[in-house]
Design a protein around this nucleic acid. Structure first.
Lengths: 156, 156
DNA sequence: TATTTGTACATAGTGTCCTATGTAACAAGT
DNA sequence: ACTTGTTACATAGGACACTATGTACAAATA
């Protein structure tokens, strides 16, 4: 389309704007979750584990949409911080079963409330429809990006 | 609003979705900029410097919307990689003037084209209006987040 | 059964961003 | 001129993500 990109343009790019928005969310959530002893990246893992449907590192990574090494590192931090426990899987010698600690389980509802609250505040001034449209467009965008990344990066 | 957050909910949260989208953009751009010798985070800096209006670390940080230490680290990497040069500011002993190297300036237009192309592809299937609406909602969201972060984190 | 292929995880190294804190230079007010 | 406050940057340390690569176990196949 446009082979030239000026100062004003870069800042209005979807790529840059989503980055700014994501970092805003992260900073806010970080600040609010810290008193509860959680980090931003841990929440998807905690919620997935709470229901007990997901137990392995592989499934957690797919659920949270991060790569396997990122999840490995995340679980290491979470284990260090007493949020999870890992026990060897009896049926598969390569794998571990991940479980929430009682302490983490106890604090989780509060964290979810805080996060939910933050999302609502971030959407202040949005009508119900606007919020829905925004989410729907975001999901379509993500679908496109998934395809592009798959082709470009040569994943899987 | 809702004090309970189930497995399905977390994934549809604006916070999580923007994070996924931002990482998708980053991975894609990363892969495409790498052959040109640029990283994702460098582009805002390069574009700002190209026009010559912004020269100091402080202004670059404000422009790219990252914190000062992040920009310091970024400039260090860019200097290491031969993208920029720093010369002491004659009028202010604390500050440095940052300038593009010729090599970086030469490769910049190609990088901008690549980035612009990626943004277009990410918006595939979006009507013109949808794209505009999306950007506009994103900006409003960012405005809200800025306020929230300012209050919560206690910036400045 | 032996070999090959695939899967789950670990490790190493890096990029990008953050907060917290220190230091040196400038600017203002007394 | 001197103190005080502000500003620009540096440094330390950590979170969270990625790619690239190695290893051990499982599954499939010859």
């Amino acid at each position: 389309m446009q082979y030239r990109m000026s100062t004003s343009d870069v800042l209005s790019t979807p790529g840059h704007l989503t980055s700014v928005a994501a970092r805003g969310f992260a900073r806010l959530s970080e600040a609010r979750l810290k008193p509860l002893g959680f980090g931003v990246g841990t929440l998807p893992v905690l919620v997935a584990l709470e229901e007990g449907r997901v137990k392995t590192q592989r499934d957690l990574a797919r659920f949270a949409r991060i790569e396997q090494p990122s999840m490995a590192q995340m679980l290491a931090r979470m284990e260090r911080d007493g949020l999870i426990l890992r026990t060897p899987d009896p049926t598969d010698g390569r794998s571990s079963r991940v479980a929430l600690t009682e302490s983490a389980r106890a604090r989780l509802p509060e964290a979810c409330a805080v996060l939910s609250q933050g999302n609502d505040e971030a959407l202040a001034g949005f009508t119900e429809t606007e919020a829905e449209v925004f989410i729907s467009l975001l999901k379509r965008l993500i679908g496109n990006l998934d395809q592009l990344v798959k082709n470009d990066v040569g994943d899987r």
